[in-house]
Nucleic acid binder design. Sequence first.
DNA 1: GTCTATACCCGGATAGAC
DNA 2: GTCTATCCGGGTATAGAC
Lengths: 199, 199
Amino acid sequence: MSSSTDRTAAATRRAGSTKERILVISRDLFARQGFTGTTIADIARELGTTTAALYYHFPSKADILRGLLDGPMADYQRILDSLGVREPPAAELLGVFIDLAVNSRELAAVIDRDPAVLAIIDEVLPMSSQQLTERVIAALAGPGADRAATIRAHAAFAVIKGASMAAMSLGGLDADGNLDPADRAEVLDAALRALYRRG
Amino acid sequence: MSSSTDRTAAATRRAGSTKERILVISRDLFARQGFTGTTIADIARELGTTTAALYYHFPSKADILRGLLDGPMADYQRILDSLGVREPPAAELLGVFIDLAVNSRELAAVIDRDPAVLAIIDEVLPMSSQQLTERVIAALAGPGADRAATIRAHAAFAVIKGASMAAMSLGGLDADGNLDPADRAEVLDAALRALYRRG
DNA sequence: GTCTATACCCGGATAGAC
DNA sequence: GTCTATCCGGGTATAGAC
């Protein structure tokens, strides 16, 4: 939520610049119909212009997606980098990922739903998105994790994604777009229980 | 399976009928590239024929998908129906879903990844696929479940899908395509811990 | 910055011969 | 059952006027 807010005052008119409006509209449509399932005609219609006008602001459909992704991607990258410096406790790391999932909720669904999106991401990323996930799993599973611990790490990660999405669609967001603290705690606890065996 | 199977041993070569080969090839390609990301030409190439030949066996691309889905769909439906008769303990229900996830592993990814697939499914189904999921969540959460219990049910369901996929990609399948019993137990335990609060 | 018009391609599907 | 040839629609993108 830090990187995505550094807009210049000039670029921020009352309703936002056209470029920003396009991003907002696209984010919404991508979330509902997927990236491939959304046409630039859809976006243009919502924007109230023609498709040609869109291309004045963005050189391609893929660039619109990139514009949407680079905020969350930077956040993700920052988390990954911090893992190299110190190993945070699992509870903290899981909490960070809940917040990331909530902040990029419209994109979260799109990302691991559309193979075309994965291709675009991998095009930009230093490492493949699969490697990215593996890095997180490794951090959750801890050093020298055996097969069972790795599976549990995947389980915990799945809880983060699945249960926070569920909480949000159950109406767990306040006016500012933050997850209800009780819901957040519930998700976090479930993830931690999945991660650690009893006893 | 009486009259249709004794039809000319010639039609049933060692590798199976052309129709079956198309299904196998398609399942594979859909899993790797997604449904929308796979073209009829892709399938035809793999099959060693032209696209026109494909249309002798299937009237449309969507029908190929339907051919792949109706097996797992029937399984799913059977589970749903059994819920009406008796409420199985959560551990049993979760176990059933692990096996379903494993048996339809190539399709599992396709199903909740491609919006186009959801549309095709909803076209055939008596209830929407969203309602289907809700039905399972309700069964897992138990009668009179509050908000927190519902979130935990989603968490457990997410573990089933995420962790069994992970176990499989870690090489947890034997020659017969069954999940390693130890892995299965690990996934099931994690799901149960996610579902039930400690104490 | 936005328009009209259109090029261009690709994917699904069909016609009809063999 | 499979082929060649082709249609058709829709989707991205561009040209050029205003």
